[in-house]
Design a protein around this nucleic acid. Structure first.
Length: 466
RNA sequence: GGCGACGUGGCCAAGUGGUAAGGCAAGGGUCUGCAAAACCCUGACCACGGGUUCGAAUCCCGUCGUCGCCUCCA
């Protein structure tokens, strides 16, 4: 069974075959750091984290690059308003985002290049395009000549003529064609700048990604990802730049995630309808957001509201319950029950893989995990011991691990507290035998205040942190 | 106006030709001193109208609706 990936450029699911057997180069467009990131950015990073984890689960060695755009009009503008250094400000947001990615359990990329540190490569890329006649300088700016690129528009399915018809762009007299876009912008008074063959200035938005890809991953890459709002013009222009320069196909697979929807609209900085990662994590666990992402198709818009958060939160709890230990004093399950559990684990693993192989159908795969949870719980109810549950629980642990879900919370009380809690529970069991309910409830309530949840089963009590 | 996506039970959401996964919520039940958890049971004929087919949520056409891109955006 082969992995299939939906490729934006062909609008079809295609069998995944990397350039080099067993290895995958993955480039994901990161944020422009001019303010705090919101859960939509987190969604994108989560989508590609899940994609990466699954590729690794399938045995691929993944080289993952995500950039930070730290040189940009908005950053400069904002820094000017706040009367501070734009680089310092960008640095601050980069550090914040990097920290949030860790909080969200997103695997660190192999490299996180940023524009300000890649200037020689960027300038060389632009120079190469000028040399080949794909770009031309104009009064300190440098523009890409779209008409020279014969298949311009093939990613987004647009034609130059159509775009002209509906264009709302002010026609810049220096451009040969209205759709020509800037590779280099001459610096205005008071703006940060770099020296270049065309004078003082800074790079345009799209060229950075072409240059960084080239620098960190080479002329051709396997997967290029980002939000679907980047398809045009950003990724379209990247293709134009990269392929014009190298003469080779740029990315084999273009993967785009859908937008986070808040009250029926795309969440975005410019619309202002956003929930920051910081705010979200202040109220919810990181796993909740991850489960929300997992529970729907990465290509579709993701509904974000309180009800969905609540549902994800409960669903997470349910997955966790699957890992709970056997009941104290469990007598062991019947051979038939044990066999059914083993069979379910096997079925689940196969179904999980089949679903994920189908363009990372995580929602389908997640459904199969819940099936496994149900059978584990039923088996526990049937009196299975920890040993009898272990294999299936390991299976659940492994597959949720592929999703990047952390089901086991760090023991807040520390392992050294366990023997004492065990003792208390044993005493309480004796107390309950005497039907001293008030005392028994008091022990449970007070343990709860200390962060220990106690639950009474048919054959005994279980406890856990949290 | 151009390009694209989507419309599945109260909510979220898989499923893209053979009579609808899963989660949350709701109701009923089992277990139970209480609590919690768990387990079992209950509900949709898939926006609407045509068409293709032995057979369609799944393919084609049309209508309505929602969303995205076309300007910075994950």
């Amino acid at each position: 069974m082969a992995l299939n990936i939906y490729n934006t450029i062909t609008r079809k699911k295609e069998s995944f075959e990397p350039l080099k057997a067993g290895e995958v180069s993955l480039y994901v467009c990161g944020p422009t750091v001019y303010s705090g990131a919101h859960v939509g950015h987190a969604m994108s990073s989560l989508v590609f984290d899940i994609l990466r984890r699954y590729l690794e689960y399938r045995g691929y060695k993944v080289r993952h690059v995500m950039n930070y755009t730290d040189v940009d009009d908005k950053i400069i503008l904002r820094a000017m308003h706040e009367e501070r250094d734009p680089f310092e400000m960008a640095e601050e947001y980069i550090n914040q985002y990097a920290g949030q990615l860790l909080d969200l359990n997103i695997l660190p990329a192999s490299a996180n290049p940023r524009v300000s540190a890649e200037m020689p490569q960027i300038i060389a890329t632009i120079q190469g395009l000028v040399d080949k006649g794909y770009a031309y300088p104009a009064e300190g700016d440098v523009y890409f000549r779209v008409e020279k690129d014969e298949d311009y528009g093939r990613l987004s399915g647009r034609k130059l003529d159509d775009m002209q018809a509906g264009s709302r762009i002010d026609v810049d007299a220096r451009k040969e064609h209205p759709m020509d876009f800037a590779l280099w912008k001459a610096a205005k008074e008071g703006e940060p700048f770099w020296e270049s063959p065309w004078g003082k200035g800074r790079p345009g938005w799209h060229i950075e990604c072409s240059a960084m890809c080239l620098h960190h991953l080479g002329e051709q890459i396997d997967i290029h990802g980002g939000g679907n709002d980047l398809i045009f013009p950003h990724h379209e222009n990247e293709i134009a730049q990269s392929e014009s320069l190298t003469g080779k196909p740029f990315a084999r697979y273009w993967v785009h995630n859908g937008m986070m929807q808040l009250s029926g609209e795309k969440m975005s900085k410019s619309l202002g309808n956003l929930v920051t990662i910081e705010d979200f994590l202040a109220k919810n666990e990181a796993e909740v957001l991850r489960l929300m992402v997992l529970n729907s198709s990465y290509r579709s818009p993701l509904t974000f509201n309180d009800e969905v958060i609540e549902a994800a939160s409960k669903g997470l709890e349910r997955l966790r319950n699957g890992l709970r230990p056997a009941f104290a004093g469990a007598a062991g399950a019947s051979a038939e029950t044990k066999a059914a559990l083993a069979a379910q684990a096997e079925t689940t693993t196969a179904a999980f893989t089949a679903a994920m192989d189908d363009d990372f159908n995580s929602a389908g795969a997640l459904g199969h995990l819940f099936d496994l949870v149900r059978v584990i719980n039923a088996t526990r109810d049937a009196g299975a011991t920890n040993e009898e549950l272990a294999a299936a629980q390991d299976c659940l642990r492994q597959l949720t691990g592929v999703f990047g879900l952390r089901l086991e919370k760090a023991a807040s009380g520390g392992a050294e507290a366990a023997p004492f809690i065990d003792l208390l529970v044993a005493v309480r069991t004796a107390v309950r035998k005497e039907k001293l309910w008030a005392l028994s409830d008091q022990i449970r309530d007070q343990l709860a205040e200390l962060g220990v949840t106690l639950e009474d089963g048919k054959d005994g009590s279980t406890w856990r942190f949290g």
